[in-house]
Each structure stands twice: as C-alpha cells, then as structure tokens.
Amino acid sequence: MKKYILKKLALSVVTLLLIIFILFLLMELMPGSPFNNPKLTPEQKEALIRSYGLDKPVLQRYFLYLGNMLKGDFGISYSLSINTPVLTLIRSRLPVSMGIGVSAMLVGSAAGLAIGFLAAFHQGKAADVICMIVSVIGISVPSYIFAIALSYFVGFRWNWLPLLYDFRSPVISSVMPVLSLSVMVMSVIARFTRDEAIAVMKSDYVMFARSQGISNRTLLFHYVIRNSIMQVITVMTLLLVGLLTGSLVTEQIFSIPGIGFLLSSAITVNDYNVVITLSFLYAAIYVVARLFLDILYGIIDPRVRLGGNER
C-alpha cells in the first residue's frame, strides 16, 4: 500500500510540472501582451516587457517561475491590479468560490444519493421514473438557467433573497448560487448511484447472499452500498473539482467575487501570472483529487490494496 501511494504521489508531481510547462507554451502562443493601455507608446511597452523579463526565452522563464513558486512566489499581476501579488488577489476570492462549491456539493450529493438509492430500490416503479425524469432535466439544463430563473423569481419578483452577492451577508447571498449549482450535482449523482446500485443488486453475489437469507440491512450496507459507492465517489470528486474552481457563468450572474470571475477577467487582458497561477491551482486541485481517489480505491477495494490481480 505504501509503495502504491508513493508511486501515485510521484506521478502527481510529474503531472503538475508538465501542466505548468504546457501553460507556459500556450501563453507564449496567445496573441497580445498584458500591456494594452492605449496610452502606452511602443517604446514604453518594450521597456515594460523587458523589465518584467518577458523577453527571455520561454524555457528560462519556466525554470525561473518554478524556482519562485517553490519559494511561494507566484508573481504579480501585470494588468488587472498592477503589481499586486497574484496570491493576494486569489486569497480573498478563493474562499468565496470554495464555500459556494463545497456547499453545492454537499447539498447536491446528499440529495443525489438519497434519490439514487430510492430509485434503485423502486426500480421500474413510479418513484424511479419520477427520480429519473428529474435527473435528466437536471443534467441537460445548464446550471445558469436555474441561476437566472432563481434570481428572477426569488430575487427579483418575490424579493426573498438578495439579487446580487453581498459581502456583508455571505450566507444569505450564497443560497441561490448554491441551489442553482447543486441541481446538476444532484442529478448526476442520482443517476450514477441508481445505475451502480441496480447493477450491484443484480449481481450474482447479491443473489447468493439473498439465497442465504442475509438481512436487508446487511445487504444494503455490506453489499449494495459498499460495492456501488466507489464509482459514486469518483464522480463526486470530479464534480467537486469543477465546483471548487468556481463557476464562470454563475459567478457572473450573481456578481460573486470568486476565482471564476477573476480567471475570466485575467484571460481577456493577458494577465499571464494570474492565468497561470489559477490554471495551476485548478490542475493542482484536480491532481490532488485523483490522488485522493486512488488512495481511496486502495482502501475500499481489496483488489487494489493488496496489489492482487484478477485471475
């Protein structure tokens, strides 16, 4: 198990290094520069580019950046908020996005698991059909539609909740964004949970356990949930990654000062360090999530943990 984790860890680090390198190459290919102020003369731009070291070869900049990163320095913003360290920009915004993302995840997962198992246990009956219709709608309608609908009715028409995000009451103003994001989470998880649980319930080992008179409780916890949960956790983690990094559109609809909003602004003005740091952050969250999953697989599935191979 230790060797297995170390291997996965090494792989994660290599992945991250590669991702940063590719980001550098991509930024190199992007047209324009961070210095777009029309008042700047070409000479002044040249001088700025030189002073920030952006004229150096890409490989050199890559290693320089890596070195600084290890020291915890992610560079400064060139254009969005001139000369502010990127970390400062992110530090105030990340908790907002994460808070909303994690809440949407919790609400959505709880509802999704409940609906999924409920549908599975009533397969083919009315409850199942209703659950699945709800989940198809939730999957196929993009979450910003729910966001718009919510803000129109609940925020504007009925005036129950603040229309836009308000610093002074973060909880109240997170309700609508969380709800609109959790619909998708709920639907995807409901679908996966149902399909996995049904597959497990049809399996030979559940049939055999039933033929032994094993109680429904034991069947549920030691057979059905245990064997279907791994797939569901995988989906949950990947969804969570998407949510943590903030939703570009939802953050705009509710004017949420999160990192999704920050990224979309940074891309439009070529604020290199902000884009790279945020992309790195996304990648890091993703890689950590994968690592978490790999380790969890190891804990839940003895075939992985013991390094055994199916005969």
Partner: peptide
C-alpha cells in the same frame, strides 16, 4: 422465507464461483 427457508433449510450454490462472492468483503 428469509428467516426459515433461505440459507436455513434450503441453500443454493450458483454456477459461477468467480462472481458468487462479495468482492469487497
């Protein structure tokens, strides 16, 4: 049936031993 028959009075062995056992227990 569960309390008095299944596994207690009548038991069944299935065809495929590779899939008859719970893989995570």
């Amino acid at each position: 049936l569960r309390d008095n028959i299944r596994g207690k009075s009548i038991a069944m062995v299935f065809q495929d031993p590779m899939t008859s056992l719970n893989p995570t227990m």
